[in-house]
């Protein structure tokens, strides 16, 4: 059985979320900063009247900050409790992946990436890391 995955890039590595989890993709948005918020939280954005928390996915995954001048893209995703927006470097294609191509994340992956990746998908062009959205949004332990 195949599934559709919406892909995006961080540091030239390709990541993905299942399309059913993705609500929409937005260009750069003005954000309102939140003092004392957990570190990866970059601010709040106004999505047609709903207030959506925006999380810097690079910071969440322990990656270095983006040095390029290109503004980040917002991937707005649906979690069990509401909408969140993930800041990514740029958006990729929607790809079909087969269940047979999926593998659990290899133990050799460093933390925190290992626990935030649901599956590794072997695409002909490279490895696609599928994000565990719910776990990525557990931000309580983060210092501000």
């Amino acid at each position: 059985m195949s599934k559709q995955v919406c892909t995006f890039y961080l540091e030239n590595q390709i990541y993905g979320l299942y399309v059913l989890q993705v609500r929409e993709v937005l260009r750069y948005q003005e954000l309102t900063a939140i003092p004392l918020a957990p570190g990866p939280v970059r601010g709040l954005l106004n999505l047609r009247g709903s207030i959506v928390t925006t999380v810097d996915l690079r910071r969440r995954l322990g990656l270095p900050p983006n040095e390029s001048d290109e503004p980040a893209t917002n991937v707005v995703a649906q979690t069990a409790t509401g909408l969140v927006s993930l800041l990514v470097d740029r958006i990729g294609d929607v790809v079909e992946v087969e269940a047979d191509d999926m593998e659990p994340p290899p133990g050799a992956l460093p933390e925190p990436i290992r626990s935030l990746i649901a599956n590794v998908c072997k695409l002909p062009t490279g490895l696609l890391l599928i994000l565990n959205l719910e776990r990525a949004m557990e931000l309580d332990a983060f210092p501000t």
Binding site: L36, I51, V52, L139
Partner: peptide, 24 residues
């Protein structure tokens, strides 16, 4: 505010101001 920010005790919520920006 979203669940991700439930630990944020200084805020009681958020609102959208006349210019469309969010304020806590």
């Amino acid at each position: 505010l979203g669940q991700e920010l439930k630990s944020l005790s200084v805020c009681a919520g958020a609102t959208i101001l006349g210019d469309g920006r969010v304020a806590l």
